[in-house]
Design a binder for these strands. Structure first.
Lengths: 346, 346
DNA sequence: AAGCATCACGAAAACGTTTTCGTGTTAAAA
DNA sequence: TTTTAACACGAAAACGTTTTCGTGATGCTT
């Protein structure tokens, strides 16, 4: 077990100075051809690679970006990571992952851990708890220390930084437009409480679409679920909520749900109550998940292009890292969503 | 925009030496109470945090572990990451993620990028291409340089290191046992080509179970799919293969599939051909995916406890990193799988 | 008053790089 | 022969820590 070889060791072996070795390896004109050859051959033989940590310290640049997400076991977020990783790698960066697990405290701790030199910048999607508490001091502190942040998906107006978001409003509007155009007159909405920005925007898109079609907005058709409850493990509770919605409103002929789980569960409950999807009730979800494609009937959905979001976020961040000149001209990129029609709509 | 404060700056401001500041902050007895208070107050005021990179360089230890996986948009792997991250964070480590994208070259490049000082050790699941080419030189080189590796799930006997695996053989055997005990006499197997170790082991479990029940092993009931094809995008191709299996073997009354997609597709094809699941045909998959739970009928499956695998792998790695003494007593931990019965079996 | 601990702190090395600047040697120019 | 320029290399600083060792000042013991 031989440790990794360093410049110092090469210098010693070849009886030259460390500077000479360093220059020889970087093909400096200061060094004679002879010496260069000798050093390079030796370095190759021993498979020399510069130590990243030493380089980071010297250059005050780690070539690493940190991504902090609320949850990794989630199709949307893992696709974002893939996008980030893709462009990061292309541009010579590594990606370090932190999970906030939807907790404010973990988000803060994670950021502090990474902000002390480990990374050059952050890509982040806020935890629900952070959104609820509206405590954003850690972002401002980070930015004030000269470390750029790019927020994606769950963003917040209070913080000045680059952002990448989905056109939640437009996406929702289009989805509901589709349902209405397909003949639905009583489109219900299954959404989250308003503090999650994306939930709020999608709700507004729903409302806008109804208005544009001169349809009455009936509050009893809007089911706002408390998404602190993990319905993935409490499926029964979710089913009950939705079943109640159907029972109380027999005329429902369309469902727009702000995520995949809600949409899918709605479909299942509808079937159980004897409705046919899409003939009696049409359903559209909002997501990038795998479930939609493989369910029966397969679910029409608003795709968010998660991987593209990741790519854009990484590009934004790295561009900023590599151009010190452009100063505080923060931009917000909006990724167009796309309605993917499957069997749950006509 | 104030840069992060350093020991040197504190020393300058307070007109003491760097050593004094460092010692004062670590509460050394060498320093007088007065000075300590002064320094600590100042440090707190300016929110001093030691620079991780400098520490890493000094200690020759990064407190970061690298995980290299073939694909992140995959329920199994993201759950493993969650497990790794969980114990890594608990023990003060960060996690850096590399994606091989099932490519040998990317696996090598990723490892080389990280092995040059960025991390203390690897957790890795081999890419399919690596398994096919059986070229493991990069692992040996890494280990020889004193950097420990823990392999999980897709492992390989040729490399001496810690490993965490699922009892693929037992898991498959139990699944097929279940089918046979439920009355299936013609259980088909949908699997991958043999070079993926987990596929091979699951196939052997299938064979063993049939043998134990004195059932004839019929090669026409074994469908070996080429998993270089991404059936997730080529669903049609997959359906055709499976449809052919059914058409050629009318007596099939049970299916064991080595992954979720195969199992789910088999269910769908079966329904389309007019079979009822589970009354005519029972199906069991092998996976930790989300699809199984939400499909109709929901899919019985062999769970691999992905998160637990991640936790074990991280524990194994960190234990080794922190105990230089226990030398090369590599262990292989086997995670028991669990048969989760849902609607696709009786 | 001389010797000796104890105290409180600073200098310097080390981790592994890169880079600036200085310097000794050789060859060309005056 | 002397001056100058080019060449080839080394010393040292810097990045931000921690830690070992040295040292001047003080107070105590004889």
């Amino acid at each position: 077990m031989k440790r990794k070889i360093t410049l110092k060791q090469i210098a010693k072996e070849l009886d030259v100075s460390i500077s000479t070795v360093s220059k020889a390896l970087r093909n400096s004109v200061e060094i004679s051809e002879d010496t260069k050859q000798k050093v390079q051959a030796f370095a190759k033989l021993y498979n020399y690679r510069p130590n990243n940590i030493a380089l980071s310290l010297k250059n005050r640049k780690t070539n690493t970006i940190g991504i902090i997400i609320p949850e990794i076991v989630h199709h949307f977020f893992s696709k974002v990571i893939r996008g980030v990783e893709l462009v990061a790698n292309q541009r010579g960066y590594n990606v370090i992952v932190g999970l906030s697990n939807e907790s404010f405290a973990k988000e803060v701790i994670n950021m502090e851990m990474l902000a002390n030199g480990s990374i050059d910048g952050f890509i982040i999607s806020l935890s629900k708890e952070t959104l609820r508490q509206q405590d954003y001091h850690h972002f401002n502190e980070t930015i004030n220390q000269g470390m750029p942040i790019v927020m994606f998906d769950r963003v917040v107006n209070e913080i000045q930084c680059d952002k990448v978001i989905v056109d939640d409003f437009e996406g929702a509007k289009n989805a509901v437009d589709k349902l209405v155009n397909n003949g639905c007159n009583n489109v219900a909405l299954i959404t989250t409480k308003d503090y999650v920005s994306v939930g709020r925007l999608r709700t507004q898109g729903y409302i806008e679409s109804l208005k544009n079609h001169n349809l009455e907005l009936k509050s009893e058709l809007i089911l706002k679920l408390d998404d602190n409850i993990d319905y993935e493990v409490n499926l029964d509770a979710l089913e009950k909520e939705i079943q109640q919605l159907f029972k109380a409103n027999k005329t429902i002929d369309g469902i727009f749900a702000v995520n995949e789980l809600y949409a899918l569960t709605a479909m299942r409950v509808a079937s159980r109550l004897g409705f046919n999807v899409p003939n009696d009730i049409q359903v559209v979800g909002f997501t990038d998940g795998v479930l939609s494609k493989h369910s029966t009937p397969s679910l029409s959905t608003v795709s968010q292009h998660a991987q593209l979001m990741g790519e854009k976020a990484a590009t934004l961040l790295i561009d900023r890292l590599e151009n010190d000149d452009d100063y505080e001209n923060y931009q917000t990129q909006i990724i167009a969503s796309e309605l993917i029609e499957r069997e749950s709509t006509k």
